[in-house]
Nucleic acid binder design. Structure first.
Length: 261
DNA sequence: ATGGTAGCCCTGCTA
């Protein structure tokens, strides 16, 4: 079984690429982030024509998460308990969606950006992760085969950015964010991709500006972390860097794991 | 050098 995650940066602008990618990669389940669409504008038919069921959580033209699966989708649950909101008054955004596919609990996550280390959005980011962690920890305790996959907007290690000098005092590498990510690992979650894609210089995201991709100036911020039961089934993983190439690419590359069975 | 590029409710915001 093959499971993947991909921040597509608008499903409508990327649907041709996503369709072609699914057809050539033999992926069974794909978690999508930044659909930037409501259900009315989500291209359900394109996925169904390929044999994939769709669960989508999109409230407006920001954020938006989905899971598409050709092995069935059950137990669809948007967001998570007590998810913090953003704005005044606070509004809970479409940044998480949990489903069950073939007995595996999968959460498509689009972690708030944080913007800057002193920005209120950073407090929102950390609070959001704390609440997600509380729910995720229950899955470890329950012995579930589960994974959280998506765009975490955190580079946990210095090797996960092209230059620590460049990112000094910027978002994504601060101790607060790294501690928030580490919390999931402390609870028993495992980065199932890194053992199969060792660094340095291995990234999942490259800024659109300044020829960042061509200059290999990227970040590793898209992760698949699984419970011990999930991790035990992982046989391999890859970052599809080729998909970042060419006109009309997302700024993120897909990340894929191969599971036994 | 708050530039650069891409996407959305097409225009200022988000990333």
């Amino acid at each position: 079984m093959r499971i993947a995650t991909w921040n597509v940066n608008s499903i409508r602008s990327r649907i041709d690429r996503v369709e072609a990618w699914l057809q050539r990669t033999d992926v069974d389940v794909l978690a999508i982030q930044e659909t930037k669409a409501t259900d009315e504008k989500f291209p359900f038919d394109r996925f169904r024509a390929l044999g994939y069921d769709v669960a989508h959580h999109g409230l407006n033209h920001w954020n938006g998460v989905a899971v598409v699966s050709r092995i069935g989708i059950d137990d669809i649950e948007p967001s998570f308990p007590d998810a913090p909101g953003w704005g005044e008054p606070p509004v809970v955004e479409a940044r998480a969606l949990t489903v069950s596919c073939g007995g595996i609990h999968l959460t498509s996550v689009y972690v708030p950006n944080g913007r800057n280390i002193a920005d209120p959005h950073m407090d929102y980011k950390v609070a959001w992760l704390e609440r997600l962690r509380a729910r995720a920890a229950q899955r470890v305790a329950a012995g579930e085969t589960a994974a959280l996959l998506g765009d975490w907007n955190i580079a946990p290690q210095d090797d996960d950015v092209w230059s620590m000098e460049y990112y000094l005092d910027k978002s994504h590498v601060s101790p607060r964010e790294r501690a928030a990510f580490q919390g999931f690992l402390d609870d028993g979650y495992v980065d199932v991709v890194r053992p199969h894609t060792p660094g340095p210089g291995v990234y999942t995201y490259w800024d659109y500006t300044q020829l960042a991709f061509q200059k290999r100036r990227g970040m590793r911020i898209d992760f698949i972390i699984g419970t011990p039961a999930f991790a035990a089934r992982v046989e391999g993983a890859a970052i599809d860097r080729e998909e970042r190439k060419g006109k009309g690419a997302s700024d993120h590359a897909p990340v894929v794991v191969q599971l036994a069975g």
